[in-house]
Amino acid sequence: MHEPLLTIRDLKKSFGRTEVLKSIDLDVGRGEVVAVIGPSGSGKTTLLRCINFLETYDGGSVRIDGAEVGYTEGRKRRGERALARMRAETGMVFQSFNLFPHLTAAQNVMLGLTKVRRKTKAEAREIAGHWLGRVGLGHKAEALPSELSGGQQQRVGIARAVAMEPKILLLDEITSALDPELVGEVLEVVRGLAAEGMTMLMVTHEIAFARDASSRIVFMADGTIAAEGPPVELIASAEANPRLFSFLARFRASHF
């Protein structure tokens, strides 16, 4: 049995006196697509942000490929350069896109390639062109984010993350800020990446998408993992889990 790519053990995080994550254990295997669902405030986004250490954590460990992300073995916070190196191994796509507004679509993708991966401009341009083509935006390479629709911006965001060839892709409610008619084009890109074996951990409110695209669904509530399992089994077991049941009930009418 291979060691999982991502191993989270006893992860704890508080904001002030509010415990946001209460001892989370989670493994994600290579090539696995795991969806995290749950009511807002359940700690989903915080969990994701701990994985690339955008958020510090108070206890437990997060390991990618066996290496602890934010801290050294003696629980000393890693230096900024080491942190930057670790973060380059995880890609992240944000709810609000967070493109660099002064850079074109291509330059957004190229920045990490040239500055972090030390590619030449020409190499970076080629890789950016490849990925922008993959997300259907080859013709928008020279467009500024302000000239793109939300769905297009988010696809650039995905291209920017995957162009770095991360070991794992973290998706943080990437369709929540989109107009309904633009959701599909973004999910299509994610589906394509999943089919190619990209390891992904995605926080999402698209329950139907989570059911169809993920190999496992994790249901979070009150800072804990309240249930997890393969999509069909998890949804089928909801009857026995009141919190999961009431959460899913809200979606049943519209999404199922």
């Binding site: 690339n52 380059a88 890609g91 992240m92 896109f97 660099f100 920045l111 500055k115 770095m164």
Partner: peptide, 30 residues
């Protein structure tokens, strides 16, 4: 500068100095 842009810079592995030069200062100038 919106925190999200700085987070995006961190997420792709830019060091603090690189974030300053390529993300924060250009945004600040505008």
């Amino acid at each position: 500068i919106p925190q999200g842009q700085i987070d995006a810079g961190r997420a792709i592995g830019l060091t603090p100095l690189q974030r300053l030069a390529y993300v924060r200062l250009p945004a600040m100038v505008r």
